Lab assay of single mutants.
Amino acid sequence: LKTAGVNTTDKEMEVLHLRNVSFEDAGEYTCLAGNSIGLSHHSAWLTVLEALEERPAVMTSPLYLEIIIYCTGAFLISCMVGSVIVYKMKSGTKKSDFHSQMAVHKLAKSIPLRRQVTVSADSSASMNSGVLLVRPSRLSSSGTPMLAGVSEYELPEDPRWELPRDRLVLGKPLGEGCFGQVVLAEAIGLDKDKPNRVTKVAVKMLKSDATEKDLSDLISEMEMMKMIGKHKNIINLLGACTQDGPLYVIVEYASKGNLREYLQARRPPGLEYCYNPSHNPEEQLSSKDLVSCAYQVARGMEYLASKKCIHRDLAARNVLVTEDNVMKIADFGLARDIHHIDYYKKTTNGRLPVKWMAPEALFDRIYTHQSDVWSFGVLLWEIFTLGGSPYPGVPVEELFKLLKEGHRMDKPSNCTNELYMMMRDCWHAVPSQRPTFKQLVEDLDRIVALTSNQEYLDLSMPLDQYSPSFPDTRSSTCSSGEDSVFSHEPLPEEPCLPRHPAQLANGGLKRR
């Protein structure tokens, strides 16, 4: 031991701790050491302190810390799992109470259905409401065949629209698609105040090879029609059969078919879209009749726009005509997947739907009320060519290029400059510069009032120099000039209409 001194630092001082000593042992101690050379000694003081209470040693090893962490984590996880189980049990009790009230408590799974309603004014964004509309049932219905791709499903009954099956008599087919079909039928007692009145209706139903998605689409269309409500110039929902059998959606019946066929059937002799010497046209149409058709469609679209509904496929083929020549817009409630459109795929009647699409819908897939206005301009062109085919002879690839360059279709022969300028306004490259349906209704209403009933179509000018029955994407082998976009001569082996020498072909294109 070194004694503290003047020249001794703290580091040089050493402390020796002795245990089991008493206060009597306190004092100075000297350590002597010697050898043959000499003797040396050092002294140190022993200080006795009071004994401290002994405390248990605390484990601070890493293993002990890990044990604490794992135990704490396990406890927290157990609490979370327990909370989830309690929540599930409570929510399951509430669901079972709800389904027992709906009398569908025996169901095993559900079809996820979404009601898609486009509400954005400047995009294709949609509001999806995840309302459960249908659930599968283990119960089988008697007297009705089961669908191959869709098991029997039981829908919640809506008393406002439900019609008993025994009050619906199915008739002949009116048309069909890939998985759905429409048949003519007679409904008894659609009007609650007149329970014995028989009404001719159209009934939409699924085919035998339909899938769950097809069922989902049909129900979504029905729900959309319920929500949009009734208007004179749209196909209205009349009722539905949802209980004890396949789903039947009952809508208004339009006896004169779609507008395109309606116009073609009323072309003057010699100007029909397909040469037929025995062709006997229906009643002749006046200019006022054509303007009235456009006015009614505009009114229907104005109503749909007021309900925040974007059609996305407005064309003469999707406008139906009733016995009283009332125009009714159809298929506005269809669920369309705008992100998976095949631009080169034709519709069932051979038309390319892209020829009715606005550039922003075609290139950027942006659907708005103003893109519907563009389609309405093409529909106007169809009306005043009596069912002509837009951009005849123009392949899709060429159409993309022409639209980007600002080309537009030429004025039809039997169309006034004012109406043609309306078409051109609908085809404005900037969507915000196109008229609204409200403005179109006002303009067409004024034109109808000024147009005489006696103004019949000028038969001295050809209505349509093209054969719409030909595929639109076909290139002409005998077109006049180098560019078949601006002219389209008859093919030698097929009868077509004579070309008027002083008139540019109706399907020609102009640059805006």
Rank of each mutant, 00 (worst) to 15 (best):
D342V: 08
L386P: 01
D214G: 03
D313E: 00
G387R: 04
K192N: 08
A185E: 04
M357K: 15
Y343H: 13
L285F: 06
V354L: 03
H340L: 08
D458N: 07
C293W: 02
R336W: 07
E382G: 03
N276D: 09
D217A: 13
Y248H: 11
Y391C: 04
K328N: 14
K401T: 13
K404E: 10
Y391H: 10
F384C: 04
M421I: 10
M227L: 13
A187T: 14
L218P: 02
S287C: 08
D193A: 12
S292A: 08
N417S: 04
L184V: 14
G393C: 10
V182G: 02
Q296L: 13
C178W: 06
Y295C: 14
D214H: 01
A429E: 05
D472H: 10
P471A: 08
E261G: 04
E186K: 05
D472A: 11
I383F: 02
T385P: 03
T385I: 04
C178F: 07
K194T: 10
K401E: 05
P462T: 07
L399V: 13
E212D: 06
A202T: 01
D191H: 08
E398Q: 13
N318S: 00
M357I: 05
F376L: 04
T451S: 08
P431R: 05
C415R: 00
A315T: 00
A315P: 01
D472E: 09
V291G: 07
E323G: 15
I447S: 14
C293F: 08
V321M: 03
D324H: 07
M423R: 01
K346Q: 15
A358S: 02
W356S: 02
S287A: 09
C274F: 11
L168M: 12
V441G: 13
G189V: 15
D443A: 09
W374G: 04
S389P: 02
E442D: 10
R424W: 04
D472N: 08
E405K: 07
N325I: 12
H279R: 10
E455K: 05
G239W: 10
L218Q: 02
F376Y: 06
L334P: 01
P353L: 04
R351P: 14
D313Y: 01
V326L: 14
P431T: 01
S475N: 12
V441A: 05
V201G: 06
R336G: 01
L380R: 04
L320Q: 00
F363L: 07
M422R: 08
N276Y: 07
I235M: 07
K288T: 05
K355N: 11
A335T: 02
V183L: 06
L314Q: 01
G333A: 00
P269S: 07
Y367C: 03
G257S: 10
S389F: 03
S292P: 11
N280I: 12
K288E: 03
N417T: 12
P431S: 12
S375C: 10
L290M: 05
S292C: 10
D410A: 05
T473A: 13
K226N: 06
A298P: 00
D445Y: 14
W381G: 08
T436P: 09
S286C: 07
H340Q: 07
E455G: 11
Q284K: 11
D372A: 01
P412S: 00
F332S: 03
M409I: 00
S306P: 01
V297G: 03
K200T: 11
L402P: 04
M222K: 14
I341V: 05
R197S: 04
K204E: 03
G189W: 03
D443Y: 11
E282Q: 08
L463Q: 09
E360G: 03
S208T: 09
N258K: 00
D472G: 13
L379P: 05
Y391F: 15
F400Y: 04
S208L: 04
G350A: 01
E302D: 15
N318K: 00
A335E: 00
N196T: 10
E398G: 13
I234L: 09
K230E: 14
Y420F: 03
Y303F: 04
S413N: 06
I235L: 11
T451P: 14
Y262F: 04
E323A: 09
D214E: 11
K346M: 15
K194I: 06
L290V: 06
R312P: 01
K404R: 11
S480T: 14
R317K: 01
P173A: 09
Y367H: 05
K226M: 15
T348A: 08
E418Q: 13
E405Q: 06
P390A: 15
Q284H: 07
N233H: 09
F179Y: 05
L190P: 08
W381L: 02
F332I: 01
K207R: 11
F179C: 05
I219L: 12
D331E: 02
D464N: 12
L457R: 12
N318T: 00
H369N: 14
D244Y: 06
S480A: 14
P395T: 05
E252A: 15
K401Q: 14
Y253S: 01
P390R: 02
N196Y: 04
I228F: 13
S479F: 15
P359T: 09
S467A: 07
F470I: 11
P281R: 06
N325T: 10
D337G: 12
D193V: 09
I447M: 08
P353S: 02
L190Q: 06
E442Q: 10
V485F: 15
P246T: 09
K328Q: 13
P468R: 08
K404T: 08
L419V: 08
P173S: 03
S476A: 14
L457P: 11
C178S: 02
I310M: 00
V319D: 00
K288Q: 07
H340N: 12
A361P: 03
R408S: 00
G333C: 02
D472Y: 06
Y273D: 03
V198L: 11
E283K: 11
D364Y: 05
C241F: 03
Q465K: 08
G387S: 02
D443N: 08
H231R: 11
A185G: 09
Q243L: 12
R299Q: 13
A294D: 02
E212K: 08
V396A: 05
R299P: 01
K232M: 14
G177R: 06
D289G: 04
H369L: 15
L238Q: 06
W374S: 07
M423V: 00
A240P: 01
D372Y: 04
V251E: 15
D464V: 11
M205I: 04
R446L: 03
G377A: 11
K172N: 13
T211A: 05
H231P: 03
E455Q: 10
Q243P: 14
I235N: 15
A316T: 05
F400I: 04
G481V: 14
T436I: 04
I250N: 01
T199N: 12
W356C: 02
H311P: 01
L184W: 13
Q243H: 08
D464A: 08
T473I: 05
N414K: 08
P392R: 00
F363S: 07
Q296H: 12
F332L: 08
G300V: 02
F437Y: 02
M224I: 15
S255A: 15
I338L: 13
S469G: 07
K200R: 10
I219V: 10
S413C: 10
C309S: 07
I447N: 13
Y248S: 07
R351G: 03
M421K: 05
R167T: 12
G270A: 15
V319G: 01
P277L: 06
S475R: 11
L380P: 14
D193H: 10
S220T: 09
D289N: 11
T368S: 04
T211P: 13
L237R: 15
S216T: 10
L440P: 00
Q370H: 11
R267S: 00
P195R: 06
L218M: 11
I383M: 14
A240D: 11
Q243E: 09
L215S: 03
T322A: 15
E261Q: 04
C241W: 03
E212A: 09
E272V: 10
L285V: 12
I366V: 04
E418V: 06
T211S: 07
C309F: 15
D445H: 14
K256M: 08
L174M: 06
P462R: 09
R197P: 05
C309R: 02
A361V: 04
S278I: 06
S480L: 13
Y303N: 12
L379R: 02
S460P: 14
Y456C: 09
V203M: 05
D313H: 00
M225R: 01
R351L: 14
V396E: 07
N258H: 01
V203G: 02
D331G: 03
P353T: 02
L190M: 13
D443V: 11
H369R: 14
T368A: 05
K288R: 11
D372G: 01
E398D: 05
D443G: 11
